[in-house]
């Protein structure tokens, strides 16, 4: 992915860069969604990161649990009814023991849904070449613009540097 980015030593300078790019997006004709931030660890208490701090993952996990539990209930009761073997005095559809299967399936549903939501919303796995820089892993924060408009590169570079970038690089 082609990108122009700067490397920042800390969250505050990265935030400055993000704000600066965002203010210039109309003028330099690029979409604010083209702004990327990449870090080596979760950036809490950082305004740009907070925007993503809302998601329906908990509710989707609950939904997965409900679906899993329902599957468990249907799996046990339907199969038991469809083949009514003599059970030697036990009920054909025993609630106590089936409850255990329903419980495990509920949990499995929640786990699978969480996993699926994570993979879908975090865009994993992806075959795109990830935007990254070895410097990130020693604590730098990458802020940049993907597919920067050709004619405004100079201005973007200036803004990235001005916000306090240690280095500004262009990804081919």
């Amino acid at each position: 992915m082609s990108a122009l980015y700067g490397l920042y030593p800390a969250a505050d300078s990265a935030q400055r860069a993000v704000d600066s790019l965002r203010n210039a997006s109309a003028e330099l004709r690029f979409d604010p969604r083209q702004i990327v931030v990449v870090s080596q660890e979760p950036l809490e208490h950082f305004a740009y990161a907070e925007e993503y701090a809302k998601s329906a993952m908990y509710w989707l996990a609950v939904l997965g649990g409900l679906l899993g539990g329902t599957t468990g209930y249907l799996l046990t009761s339907i199969t038991q009814k469809s083949y009514p073997l003599p059970t030697g005095g036990m009920p054909l559809v025993p609630p106590w023991t089936n409850g255990i299967i329903v419980y495990e399936m509920t949990m499995l549903g929640a786990i699978v849904f969480t996993l699926a939501t994570l993979l879908v919303t975090a865009h994993l796995p992806t075959f795109k070449k990830p935007l990254t820089d070895p410097e990130i892993w020693s604590g730098k924060i990458l802020v940049g613009v993907t597919d920067p408009p050709e004619n405004s590169r100079r201005q973007l570079e200036a803004r990235l540097t001005q916000a306090g970038a240690l280095a500004v690089k262009l990804n081919p």
Binding site: V38, Y52, S55, L118, A122, L124, P130, L131, T132
Partner: peptide, 11 residues
Amino acid sequence: GWEGTPRQWHR
């Protein structure tokens, strides 16, 4: 293909 965007970290 992990990048480390705020969205990925949060999820």
